[in-house]
Design a protein around this nucleic acid. Sequence first.
DNA 1: AATGAAATTTAAACCAT
DNA 2: ATGGTTTAAATTTCATT
Lengths: 161, 161
Amino acid sequence: MRPQQRNRGAAVNELDDIDRQLIAILQKDGRRSFKDIADETGHPASSVRYRVQRLEDSGILQIVGIANPLSIGFDHLAMVGIHCEPGYARSVCEALSALPETSYVVLTSGGFDVMVEVICRDMEHYKELLLERLQTTEGVRRTETFFVLEAHKLAYGWGVG
Amino acid sequence: MRPQQRNRGAAVNELDDIDRQLIAILQKDGRRSFKDIADETGHPASSVRYRVQRLEDSGILQIVGIANPLSIGFDHLAMVGIHCEPGYARSVCEALSALPETSYVVLTSGGFDVMVEVICRDMEHYKELLLERLQTTEGVRRTETFFVLEAHKLAYGWGVG
DNA sequence: AATGAAATTTAAACCAT
DNA sequence: ATGGTTTAAATTTCATT
Protein backbone atom coordinates (compact mmCIF):
# COMPACT_ATOMS: atom_id res chain seq x y z
CA MET A 1 0.00 0.00 0.00
CA ARG A 2 1.20 3.47 -0.79
CA PRO A 3 2.13 5.73 2.11
CA GLN A 4 -0.47 8.32 1.13
CA GLN A 5 -3.17 5.74 1.65
CA ARG A 6 -2.19 4.57 5.11
CA ASN A 7 -4.93 4.75 7.66
CA ARG A 8 -7.44 6.10 5.21
CA GLY A 9 -9.53 2.96 5.37
CA ALA A 10 -13.15 3.82 4.74
CA ALA A 11 -12.63 7.45 5.65
CA VAL A 12 -14.37 10.13 3.65
CA ASN A 13 -12.39 13.32 3.37
CA GLU A 14 -15.11 15.49 2.00
CA LEU A 15 -18.60 14.89 0.74
CA ASP A 16 -19.39 15.45 -2.89
CA ASP A 17 -22.76 16.17 -4.45
CA ILE A 18 -23.53 12.49 -4.92
CA ASP A 19 -22.93 11.77 -1.23
CA ARG A 20 -25.22 14.62 -0.28
CA GLN A 21 -27.85 13.37 -2.70
CA LEU A 22 -27.76 9.89 -1.18
CA ILE A 23 -27.93 11.27 2.36
CA ALA A 24 -30.91 13.42 1.45
CA ILE A 25 -32.81 10.44 0.06
CA LEU A 26 -32.02 8.20 3.02
CA GLN A 27 -32.98 10.90 5.49
CA LYS A 28 -36.52 10.59 4.20
CA ASP A 29 -36.65 6.80 4.06
CA GLY A 30 -33.82 4.80 5.54
CA ARG A 31 -35.01 1.55 3.95
CA ARG A 32 -35.24 2.74 0.33
CA SER A 33 -33.65 -0.01 -1.73
CA PHE A 34 -30.32 0.78 -3.35
CA LYS A 35 -31.81 -0.06 -6.69
CA ASP A 36 -34.60 2.47 -6.18
CA ILE A 37 -32.05 5.09 -5.27
CA ALA A 38 -29.97 4.10 -8.27
CA ASP A 39 -32.93 4.56 -10.61
CA GLU A 40 -33.81 7.92 -9.09
CA THR A 41 -30.31 9.33 -9.19
CA GLY A 42 -29.08 7.68 -12.37
CA HIS A 43 -26.07 6.09 -10.67
CA PRO A 44 -25.44 2.35 -10.80
CA ALA A 45 -26.81 0.38 -7.87
CA SER A 46 -23.42 -0.99 -6.95
CA SER A 47 -22.01 2.52 -6.71
CA VAL A 48 -24.88 3.66 -4.55
CA ARG A 49 -24.25 0.76 -2.25
CA TYR A 50 -20.52 1.40 -2.21
CA ARG A 51 -20.98 5.01 -1.21
CA VAL A 52 -23.65 4.42 1.40
CA GLN A 53 -21.46 1.78 3.00
CA ARG A 54 -18.53 4.18 3.04
CA LEU A 55 -20.65 6.90 4.61
CA GLU A 56 -21.81 4.49 7.29
CA ASP A 57 -18.35 3.09 7.95
CA SER A 58 -16.87 6.53 8.31
CA GLY A 59 -19.51 7.53 10.84
CA ILE A 60 -21.12 10.26 8.79
CA LEU A 61 -24.40 8.49 8.21
CA GLN A 62 -26.38 6.20 10.47
CA ILE A 63 -29.57 4.43 9.49
CA VAL A 64 -31.72 3.70 12.49
CA GLY A 65 -35.24 3.10 13.63
CA ILE A 66 -36.68 5.91 15.69
CA ALA A 67 -39.60 5.28 18.01
CA ASN A 68 -41.90 8.04 19.13
CA PRO A 69 -41.39 8.09 22.91
CA LEU A 70 -44.97 9.15 23.44
CA SER A 71 -46.16 6.01 21.69
CA ILE A 72 -44.07 3.67 23.72
CA GLY A 73 -45.19 4.85 27.13
CA PHE A 74 -42.56 7.48 27.83
CA ASP A 75 -44.52 10.68 27.77
CA HIS A 76 -42.65 12.87 30.18
CA LEU A 77 -40.00 14.77 28.29
CA ALA A 78 -37.99 17.48 29.96
CA MET A 79 -35.04 19.69 29.16
CA VAL A 80 -32.79 20.20 32.16
CA GLY A 81 -30.28 23.04 32.37
CA ILE A 82 -27.38 22.37 34.73
CA HIS A 83 -24.91 24.64 36.48
CA CYS A 84 -21.69 22.82 37.39
CA GLU A 85 -18.83 23.36 39.77
CA PRO A 86 -15.92 24.86 37.83
CA GLY A 87 -14.00 22.14 36.01
CA TYR A 88 -16.73 19.52 36.27
CA ALA A 89 -18.80 20.19 33.17
CA ARG A 90 -17.24 17.51 31.01
CA SER A 91 -17.36 14.79 33.65
CA VAL A 92 -20.99 15.68 34.33
CA CYS A 93 -21.71 15.25 30.62
CA GLU A 94 -20.06 11.88 30.61
CA ALA A 95 -21.89 10.67 33.69
CA LEU A 96 -25.28 11.83 32.42
CA SER A 97 -24.72 10.40 28.93
CA ALA A 98 -24.51 6.97 30.55
CA LEU A 99 -28.04 7.22 31.94
CA PRO A 100 -30.68 5.47 29.83
CA GLU A 101 -33.16 8.29 30.41
CA THR A 102 -31.04 10.92 28.66
CA SER A 103 -31.52 11.37 24.94
CA TYR A 104 -29.49 14.54 24.57
CA VAL A 105 -26.48 15.73 26.52
CA VAL A 106 -24.48 18.78 25.47
CA LEU A 107 -21.84 21.03 26.98
CA THR A 108 -22.89 24.63 26.46
CA SER A 109 -21.77 28.20 26.91
CA GLY A 110 -24.21 30.70 28.36
CA GLY A 111 -26.51 30.52 31.34
CA PHE A 112 -26.04 26.77 31.74
CA ASP A 113 -22.93 24.66 31.52
CA VAL A 114 -24.71 21.48 30.49
CA MET A 115 -28.12 20.80 28.98
CA VAL A 116 -29.76 17.39 28.87
CA GLU A 117 -33.04 16.09 27.58
CA VAL A 118 -34.59 13.30 29.57
CA ILE A 119 -37.46 10.96 28.75
CA CYS A 120 -39.38 9.43 31.65
CA ARG A 121 -42.41 7.21 32.03
CA ASP A 122 -44.11 9.42 34.59
CA MET A 123 -43.56 12.04 37.26
CA GLU A 124 -42.50 9.51 39.86
CA HIS A 125 -39.82 8.31 37.49
CA TYR A 126 -38.71 11.88 36.83
CA LYS A 127 -38.59 12.74 40.52
CA GLU A 128 -36.38 9.74 41.24
CA LEU A 129 -34.11 10.58 38.30
CA LEU A 130 -33.74 14.23 39.28
CA LEU A 131 -33.26 13.82 43.02
CA GLU A 132 -31.42 10.54 43.18
CA ARG A 133 -29.29 10.62 40.07
CA LEU A 134 -29.00 14.02 38.36
CA GLN A 135 -28.58 16.10 41.50
CA THR A 136 -26.27 13.61 43.18
CA THR A 137 -23.87 13.55 40.23
CA GLU A 138 -20.51 14.93 41.31
CA GLY A 139 -20.01 18.49 40.10
CA VAL A 140 -23.70 19.35 39.67
CA ARG A 141 -24.46 22.57 41.53
CA ARG A 142 -27.94 23.55 40.41
CA THR A 143 -30.57 22.29 37.97
CA GLU A 144 -33.50 23.92 36.24
CA THR A 145 -36.19 21.81 34.63
CA PHE A 146 -38.20 22.76 31.56
CA PHE A 147 -40.99 20.26 31.00
CA VAL A 148 -41.90 19.72 27.39
CA LEU A 149 -45.60 20.43 27.05
CA GLU A 150 -45.76 20.09 23.28
CA ALA A 151 -43.15 18.77 20.87
CA HIS A 152 -43.53 20.66 17.62
CA LYS A 153 -40.41 19.49 15.86
CA LEU A 154 -37.97 16.80 16.85
CA ALA A 155 -35.33 16.16 14.22
CA TYR A 156 -32.31 13.98 14.33
CA GLY A 157 -28.90 14.36 15.74
CA TRP A 158 -26.69 11.59 16.87
CA GLY A 159 -23.86 10.47 19.07
CA VAL A 160 -20.68 12.33 18.32
CA GLY A 161 -18.79 11.20 21.39
CA MET B 1 -66.23 -6.46 8.72
CA ARG B 2 -67.37 -6.52 12.28
CA PRO B 3 -68.37 -3.21 13.88
CA GLN B 4 -65.69 -3.54 16.53
CA GLN B 5 -63.08 -3.45 13.82
CA ARG B 6 -64.20 -0.30 12.08
CA ASN B 7 -61.57 2.37 11.66
CA ARG B 8 -58.87 0.27 13.23
CA GLY B 9 -56.91 0.15 9.97
CA ALA B 10 -53.21 0.03 10.63
CA ALA B 11 -53.59 1.53 14.09
CA VAL B 12 -51.78 -0.02 16.99
CA ASN B 13 -53.60 0.20 20.26
CA GLU B 14 -50.80 -0.90 22.49
CA LEU B 15 -47.40 -2.37 21.92
CA ASP B 16 -46.67 -5.91 23.00
CA ASP B 17 -43.31 -7.44 23.80
CA ILE B 18 -42.74 -8.50 20.21
CA ASP B 19 -43.26 -4.95 18.97
CA ARG B 20 -40.81 -3.65 21.54
CA GLN B 21 -38.32 -6.32 20.55
CA LEU B 22 -38.54 -5.34 16.90
CA ILE B 23 -38.19 -1.65 17.70
CA ALA B 24 -35.13 -2.34 19.84
CA ILE B 25 -33.43 -4.23 17.02
CA LEU B 26 -34.22 -1.60 14.41
CA GLN B 27 -33.07 1.20 16.68
CA LYS B 28 -29.58 -0.25 16.44
CA ASP B 29 -29.61 -0.98 12.71
CA GLY B 30 -32.48 0.33 10.63
CA ARG B 31 -31.52 -1.78 7.63
CA ARG B 32 -31.39 -5.19 9.29
CA SER B 33 -33.16 -7.58 6.95
CA PHE B 34 -36.49 -8.95 8.08
CA LYS B 35 -35.13 -12.44 7.69
CA ASP B 36 -32.23 -11.65 10.03
CA ILE B 37 -34.66 -10.26 12.57
CA ALA B 38 -36.88 -13.28 12.12
CA ASP B 39 -33.99 -15.65 12.79
CA GLU B 40 -32.87 -13.70 15.85
CA THR B 41 -36.30 -13.44 17.41
CA GLY B 42 -37.70 -16.79 16.33
CA HIS B 43 -40.75 -15.21 14.70
CA PRO B 44 -41.60 -15.93 11.07
CA ALA B 45 -40.30 -13.39 8.58
CA SER B 46 -43.78 -12.60 7.34
CA SER B 47 -44.91 -11.67 10.83
CA VAL B 48 -41.89 -9.47 11.35
CA ARG B 49 -42.65 -7.70 8.10
CA TYR B 50 -46.31 -7.31 8.99
CA ARG B 51 -45.55 -5.83 12.38
CA VAL B 52 -42.81 -3.47 11.26
CA GLN B 53 -45.05 -2.20 8.49
CA ARG B 54 -47.84 -1.64 10.97
CA LEU B 55 -45.54 0.23 13.34
CA GLU B 56 -44.40 2.45 10.50
CA ASP B 57 -47.89 3.02 9.16
CA SER B 58 -49.23 3.96 12.55
CA GLY B 59 -46.45 6.49 13.07
CA ILE B 60 -44.81 4.79 16.01
CA LEU B 61 -41.63 3.85 14.22
CA GLN B 62 -39.69 5.68 11.57
CA ILE B 63 -36.58 4.37 9.85
CA VAL B 64 -34.36 7.15 8.64
CA GLY B 65 -30.84 8.07 7.75
CA ILE B 66 -29.23 10.45 10.17
CA ALA B 67 -26.27 12.53 9.11
CA ASN B 68 -23.86 13.97 11.60
CA PRO B 69 -24.31 17.74 11.11
CA LEU B 70 -20.67 18.33 11.96
CA SER B 71 -19.63 16.10 9.07
CA ILE B 72 -21.76 17.85 6.54
CA GLY B 73 -20.52 21.35 7.19
CA PHE B 74 -22.99 22.51 9.80
CA ASP B 75 -20.92 22.86 12.90
CA HIS B 76 -22.66 25.59 14.84
CA LEU B 77 -25.30 24.06 17.07
CA ALA B 78 -27.13 26.16 19.61
CA MET B 79 -30.02 25.78 21.99
CA VAL B 80 -32.15 28.89 22.20
CA GLY B 81 -34.52 29.59 25.07
CA ILE B 82 -37.36 31.94 24.21
CA HIS B 83 -39.69 34.06 26.31
CA CYS B 84 -42.93 34.86 24.52
CA GLU B 85 -45.69 37.40 24.84
CA PRO B 86 -48.61 35.81 26.69
CA GLY B 87 -50.68 33.71 24.31
CA TYR B 88 -48.07 33.52 21.58
CA ALA B 89 -46.08 30.46 22.58
CA ARG B 90 -47.82 28.04 20.26
CA SER B 91 -47.73 30.29 17.23
CA VAL B 92 -44.05 30.94 17.88
CA CYS B 93 -43.46 27.18 17.90
CA GLU B 94 -45.26 26.80 14.62
CA ALA B 95 -43.38 29.62 12.97
CA LEU B 96 -39.98 28.38 14.15
CA SER B 97 -40.73 24.76 13.19
CA ALA B 98 -41.02 25.93 9.61
CA LEU B 99 -37.43 27.20 9.54
CA PRO B 100 -34.95 24.78 7.98
CA GLU B 101 -32.33 25.60 10.63
CA THR B 102 -34.40 24.30 13.52
CA SER B 103 -34.04 20.65 14.44
CA TYR B 104 -35.94 20.78 17.72
CA VAL B 105 -38.85 22.99 18.74
CA VAL B 106 -40.74 22.43 21.97
CA LEU B 107 -43.23 24.31 24.10
CA THR B 108 -42.06 24.23 27.70
CA SER B 109 -43.01 25.18 31.22
CA GLY B 110 -40.42 26.84 33.42
CA GLY B 111 -38.03 29.68 32.77
CA PHE B 112 -38.63 29.61 29.02
CA ASP B 113 -41.84 29.25 27.06
CA VAL B 114 -40.22 27.75 23.99
CA MET B 115 -36.91 26.04 23.37
CA VAL B 116 -35.41 25.41 19.96
CA GLU B 117 -32.23 23.82 18.71
CA VAL B 118 -30.71 25.38 15.63
CA ILE B 119 -27.97 24.13 13.32
CA CYS B 120 -26.01 26.70 11.35
CA ARG B 121 -23.07 26.69 8.99
CA ASP B 122 -21.19 29.45 10.77
CA MET B 123 -21.55 32.46 13.05
CA GLU B 124 -22.60 34.75 10.23
CA HIS B 125 -25.41 32.35 9.46
CA TYR B 126 -26.40 32.20 13.14
CA LYS B 127 -26.34 35.97 13.50
CA GLU B 128 -28.64 36.39 10.51
CA LEU B 129 -30.98 33.69 11.81
CA LEU B 130 -31.18 35.14 15.32
CA LEU B 131 -31.55 38.81 14.44
CA GLU B 132 -33.53 38.62 11.22
CA ARG B 133 -35.75 35.63 11.80
CA LEU B 134 -35.96 34.40 15.40
CA GLN B 135 -36.19 37.80 17.06
CA THR B 136 -38.53 39.22 14.45
CA THR B 137 -41.05 36.41 14.89
CA GLU B 138 -44.31 37.79 16.23
CA GLY B 139 -44.69 37.06 19.93
CA VAL B 140 -41.00 36.62 20.71
CA ARG B 141 -40.04 38.86 23.61
CA ARG B 142 -36.55 37.73 24.62
CA THR B 143 -34.08 35.03 23.60
CA GLU B 144 -31.13 33.40 25.34
CA THR B 145 -28.59 31.41 23.34
CA PHE B 146 -26.65 28.42 24.62
CA PHE B 147 -23.99 27.43 22.14
CA VAL B 148 -23.24 23.75 22.03
CA LEU B 149 -19.51 23.35 22.66
CA GLU B 150 -19.49 19.56 22.81
CA ALA B 151 -22.24 17.11 21.92
CA HIS B 152 -21.91 14.11 24.19
CA LYS B 153 -25.14 12.36 23.38
CA LEU B 154 -27.67 13.09 20.69
CA ALA B 155 -30.38 10.49 20.49
CA TYR B 156 -33.48 10.41 18.41
CA GLY B 157 -36.80 11.97 18.72
CA TRP B 158 -39.04 12.77 15.86
CA GLY B 159 -41.75 14.92 14.44
CA VAL B 160 -44.94 14.64 16.40
CA GLY B 161 -46.65 17.62 14.81
C1' DA C 1 -12.23 4.08 -6.29
C1' DA C 2 -15.99 2.81 -9.14
C1' DT C 3 -18.61 -0.29 -12.01
C1' DG C 4 -20.89 -4.55 -14.13
C1' DA C 5 -22.53 -9.06 -13.92
C1' DA C 6 -23.20 -13.37 -11.53
C1' DA C 7 -24.77 -16.04 -7.71
C1' DT C 8 -27.25 -15.77 -3.54
C1' DT C 9 -30.46 -13.92 -0.43
C1' DT C 10 -34.36 -11.30 0.66
C1' DA C 11 -38.74 -9.05 0.12
C1' DA C 12 -43.51 -8.83 -1.61
C1' DA C 13 -47.76 -10.80 -2.76
C1' DC C 14 -50.74 -14.30 -1.99
C1' DC C 15 -53.44 -17.54 0.55
C1' DA C 16 -54.91 -20.31 4.41
C1' DT C 17 -55.80 -20.47 9.20
C1' DA D 1 -53.22 -11.27 13.24
C1' DT D 2 -50.21 -15.06 12.05
C1' DG D 3 -47.53 -18.29 9.39
C1' DG D 4 -46.31 -20.69 5.02
C1' DT D 5 -45.31 -20.65 -0.03
C1' DT D 6 -44.12 -18.86 -4.34
C1' DT D 7 -42.43 -15.36 -7.45
C1' DA D 8 -40.12 -11.19 -8.29
C1' DA D 9 -36.59 -8.16 -6.77
C1' DA D 10 -32.64 -6.67 -4.35
C1' DT D 11 -28.20 -7.50 -2.27
C1' DT D 12 -23.69 -9.36 -2.11
C1' DT D 13 -19.58 -11.00 -4.01
C1' DC D 14 -16.11 -10.85 -7.14
C1' DA D 15 -13.82 -9.73 -11.31
C1' DT D 16 -12.64 -5.73 -14.16
C1' DT D 17 -11.31 -1.02 -15.26
